[in-house]
Design a protein around this nucleic acid. Structure first.
Length: 522
RNA sequence: CGGGCUGUAGCGCAGCUUGGUUAGCGCGCCUGCUUUGGGAGCAGGAGGUCCCGGGUUCAAAUCCCGGCAGCCCGACCA
């Protein structure tokens, strides 16, 4: 094997079969596995560690804006769901329903007994039940705004589960707020929309297109829905977060009213917004490579793993001591760009050093350090950056310790820039006719294999007249409008970075000035 | 919920057409030796209700019937 380029850890490669590659990364990186319950997953320590990082940081952002965490029940009375017509319509098909509260043994089998008078649904989202409480809690304009958030599991009975991307049960954060005016509620919607955008880009290093959902893609019951759309390495879009302006729809349905300063009784304006464990799927498909996952340093449970090279000799004790000293120096004294202590782990398990290192590479740890007798003797450190497949580097102990913070920042930035370049290169803006657009989507990815795997060629940014007919003009090719790019500071203005060429609708040729992002999606 | 396919060791598979010793192979796992700083080698070993239930047969992983589960492709979705 010496002297030869090692084969990638993940088989098949991204190029060969992207969906299979994805599943293999989930396995090889020890993130999660499908449970023995249909559509559900077991999130393993490494995968959950990433979720915890993400959760902790985002929770900080949410709290910093005045929201308070709460917890509402998993079960929702059916009658609550029935209150908002569009909401019912949107979620009815994927609802898990509890109809019994007891099991009885018959012929050695347990069968449901004790039928409930009113079936209970397992929450697919919590607008209905939180709205019911808001209606009780809010009496006066002085009770507003009410800013709530909860971290919870939800259940949506999906037809085609895919680990992290679409599972029957998933974890998320759902914010629910109530406001006195439409303007305020809209400002809240945009505020959290902005939080998601910068969270995705700065923390997860996933560049996104921020925009508004077209009518058909709106959250059931929302007046306006906004999403951040990320581009996966196969060119497909992934909705990575949503923020909804619900207007007075849910307030009307749930009776969330208040008396304003003039004594007039009016419906509150509500919002909701969320991101889910799907973000881990986005992370995999954005930063993963043919050697496995690649976790941005800010999201990594361990940013640095130190692997002592043990040889079963008398030098071992010294090597371990040296490794401990390194871990202590990095973990106790160094800070990342956000001022947090660095997360460093000593891997002293009794496996071969190369095997351990390889395992951490597949898991995507940003920096893996190997220290052996030579390093201990020379007061040096050997390390590899996950983002550069090249050779191991060497530095003196002090230089490494003092430079590791900046190095992690650099890796974070490298990942972002790579993804940003891919996104920029993957957006076509020059299709102005239906034929050109159809050619774009029909051509699929580069190469026949890629096409066979259903790889998309990317995003098409084109003008749209706004008609429902034109919205679905490319549905037969798997592409729909993912969003209408919007300026994060103004929901009614186009995003200056995402403008399409031309002045006529790509589907019908009518005059059009709306920029729509068409893409195949997850 | 329609169409196609598959259930054999932790994972990935062969065997099934044409029933017949102890059901194999790769990876992983365990032990030993040799190795070790670019993803080990050799030798030995553990691990299986062949998805479940019934039927045919002297004999079923293999044939038949009925279940169940999963995957892929569509319609739906964070």
């Amino acid at each position: 094997m010496a002297g030869k380029t090692p084969s990638p850890a993940i088989s098949p490669t991204r190029e060969e079969d992207f969906p299979a590659w994805y599943q293999e990364v989930v396995r090889a990186a020890d993130l999660a596995e499908m449970a023995h319950v249909r559509g559900c997953m077991v999130i393993k320590p490494w995968g959950f560690g990433i979720w915890e990082r993400l959760r902790d940081v985002l929770d900080g952002e949410i709290r910093a804006r005045g929201h308070e965490n709460v917890y509402f029940p998993l079960f929702i009375p059916l009658s609550y769901i029935e209150q908002e017509a569009a909401h019912v319509e949107g979620f009815a098909k994927e609802m898990a329903v509890v109809t019994h509260h007891r099991l009885e043994s018959r012929d050695g089998k347990l069968v449901p007994a004790g039928e409930l008078e009113e079936p209970i649904v397992v929450r697919p989202t919590s607008e209905a039940i939180i709205g019911a409480s808001m209606a009780q809690w809010i009496q006066s304009y002085r009770d507003l705004p009410l800013l709530l958030n909860q971290w919870a599991n939800v259940v949506r009975w999906e037809m085609r589960p895919r680990v992290f991307l679409r599972t029957t049960e998933f974890l998320w954060q759902e914010g629910h707020t109530a406001h006195a005016t439409s303007t305020e509620a809209m400002a809240e919607t945009m505020e959290m929309f902005g939080v998601y955008r910068s969270f995705a880009e700065d923390f997860l290093a996933i560049p996104v297109v921020p925009g508004e959902k077209p009518p058909s893609e709106r959250f059931p019951g929302a007046e306006r829905s906004f999403s951040i759309e990320a581009m996966m390495q196969d060119g497909k879009a992934l909705q990575a977060g949503t923020s909804h302006f619900l207007g007075q729809n849910f307030a009307r349905a749930a009776g969330i009213d208040f008396l304003d300063a003039t004594g007039e009784r009016i419906h509150a304006y509500t919002t909701s917004w969320g991101v889910s464990t799907r973000l881990i799927g986005a992370l995999i498909m954005t930063h993963g490579d043919d050697d496995g996952l690649c976790v941005p340093p800010r999201a990594a449970p361990h940013q640095i793993v130190v692997v002592p090279i043990l040889r079963g000799e008398e030098t071992d004790a010294g090597v371990i001591e040296y490794a401990r000293k390194l871990v202590g120096s990095v973990g106790a004294r160094q800070r990342d760009s956000a001022g947090e202590p660095l997360r460093v782990k000593l891997d002293d398990r009794p496996h071969r050093a190369v095997d351990k290192r390889w395992q951490w590479v597949k898991r995507g740890v940003p920096v893996v350090v190997e220290v052996g007798p030579r390093d201990a003797a020379g007061n040096t450190v050997s390390y590899r950056e996950r983002t550069s497949a090249g050779e191991s580097r060497s530095a003196s102990f002090d230089v490494f310790v003092n430079g590791i913070g900046p190095l992690l920042s650099e890796i974070q930035s490298t990942l972002y820039v790579r993804a940003r370049d891919r996104l920029d290169a993957g957006i076509a803006r020059d299709c102005t006719t239906r034929a050109e657009a159809e050619e774009f989507f029909a051509s699929g990815g580069e190469g026949s294999e890629s096409r066979a795997q259903g790889n998309s060629r990317g995003f098409l940014l084109a003008k749209w007249c706004g008609s429902p007919e034109c919205e679905v003009a490319f549905r037969h090719l798997g592409a729909t409008i993912r969003c209408i790019p919007r300026s994060p500071s103004d929901p009614d203005s186009p995003h200056p970075s995402f403008l399409a060429e031309g002045h006529s609708c790509v589907a019908c040729g009518c005059p059009a000035d709306t920029d729509a992002l068409f893409a195949q999606s997850y």
